[in-house]
Amino acid sequence: MDNLTKSEQQELETRLQKRQVKEFMTLFGGLVDNCFTACVDDFTSKALSGRENGCISRCVIKSMATQTRLSERFAELNQSMTAEMQNKRF
């Protein structure tokens, strides 16, 4: 990135890697919260029912697809926004 030296880049890299682990855990937690809330509402049994099981798998698949699609759009939009801001500056 910008004008960082090699060692500074390495330091940034290790920090980002640590953050990535944290972010993955947050994502995972969010997925559990979201799909549990959306799919599980019957507490007459302590095991997940067939319906709840199916709902949860569909929820995970769909959430991943959503995540992928939004990430693609985000990358595009973020890039054009950055380009626009740089054009304004110079």
Binding site: N34, A38, I56, R58, K62, S63, R69
Partner: peptide
Amino acid sequence: TKICSQKCIDATYREGDL
């Protein structure tokens, strides 16, 4: 991601595909 999922995704999850 949070906001657009809430606004766009049907939360009954009858379908696994978008």
